[in-house]
Simulated scan of single mutants.
Amino acid sequence: MRLVLLFIFCLQSFLYAQEEHGKASFYADKFEGRSTASGEKYRHTKLTAAHRTLPFGTSVKVTNLDNNKSVTVRINDRGPFVKGRVIDLSKSAAQKLNFIRQGTADVKIEIVSVEDAKVENIEPDVVSLPENVKYYGLKMDTVERSGFGVQIGSYRDMENLMNTATNLKPAYAREVTIKQRMVDGAKIYSLIIGHFHKRDEAEAFKKKVQKRHPGSFIIDYSLF
């Protein structure tokens, strides 16, 4: 049997979805057509937002706590830099949350997907640090695997993989394995959940995760 997988994570330490609370604001009309920090042009009709630390491309669900209305937006800019505000929404997103008249709203932010996120080198400062920083314990060992697992996704950046891992549903409480391989001289990291002895067990688990991770598929550890 080959030694195939580099890391095994202690899953209990990071099976909690990231969540943030605070004030949301929205872009003024004067910003229409201006470049955002990601290089995209701001368009008020698109469901986008600015956040101080989340990677560009991250999708988040924003819920107005006053009326329970929700909208999913994609992070493509930095800000807001006003104390107490956690996200700056495009005007169309603010309209969906129905707080245009008020100007701001108390919201809850939940990460939906980080699969398309781009990681930047950001120098944090006291002003831009998130207000609900979380710390996670991590255990790594080289392991041998047999049987089957369900691959959730592959990533060029370990940061993107970790963002996905930290937002796995608690109901998925299984061993998490990271496979590292070289492709065209670059390291690729694959996130695999579960260690099943029978393929039908892996099939049943795949059906469970596919609603949230539609690209999931079964891998046979013995083939590596």
Rank of each mutant, 00 (worst) to 15 (best):
E144D: 10
D88Y: 02
S128T: 13
V112L: 09
N67Q: 05
E110L: 07
S70C: 08
S113A: 08
S70Y: 04
Y136F: 15
F56A: 05
D66H: 10
P130N: 09
E144P: 00
D77N: 07
R74H: 00
V71W: 03
I75Q: 04
V107G: 04
V127A: 13
K83F: 08
V127Q: 12
D141F: 09
S113E: 07
A117K: 12
V71N: 07
D88C: 01
M140E: 11
V86A: 08
K118L: 12
K96T: 09
F81C: 05
I75W: 04
F56E: 05
K69E: 12
S146C: 01
L97N: 08
D88F: 03
K118W: 02
Q102R: 13
V73R: 08
V126K: 14
K91A: 06
D106P: 00
D141P: 00
V119C: 01
N121R: 12
G79S: 08
L54N: 02
V112P: 05
R74C: 13
D66R: 10
A105I: 05
V127C: 00
D77K: 01
D66E: 13
I100F: 05
P55A: 01
D125F: 02
F56S: 05
K69D: 06
A93V: 09
K139A: 12
L129T: 10
S146R: 14
N76F: 07
I109C: 02
D116E: 15
S92F: 02
P124T: 08
K134H: 07
V127P: 00
E144G: 12
V71L: 08
L129P: 00
K139T: 13
K134P: 00
Q95E: 15
S113W: 04
T142F: 09
M140H: 10
L89Y: 05
E131K: 14
P55N: 02
E123W: 01
A94I: 06
K108R: 15
P130V: 03
K61V: 02
V143K: 14
V126I: 14
V82F: 08
L54H: 02
E144K: 14
D106T: 11
T142Y: 12
E123P: 00
R145S: 11
V133W: 05
E115L: 07
N76C: 10
K134Q: 14
K118N: 05
V62L: 02
K108A: 13
A117W: 07
E123N: 11
G103K: 03
G137E: 14
I75H: 03
N98E: 15
A105K: 07
E115N: 08
L138Q: 09
S146Y: 11
D141W: 06
D88K: 11
K61N: 13
D88Q: 01
I109E: 03
V71M: 06
S59L: 14
N132Q: 15
A93T: 09
V114T: 15
Y136H: 15
E144T: 13
E120G: 03
A93R: 13
I122D: 06
V127N: 12
I111H: 03
V62N: 04
A93H: 10
V126R: 14
A94T: 06
G79C: 10
F99A: 09
Y135T: 13
D88I: 03
I87C: 05
K96F: 00
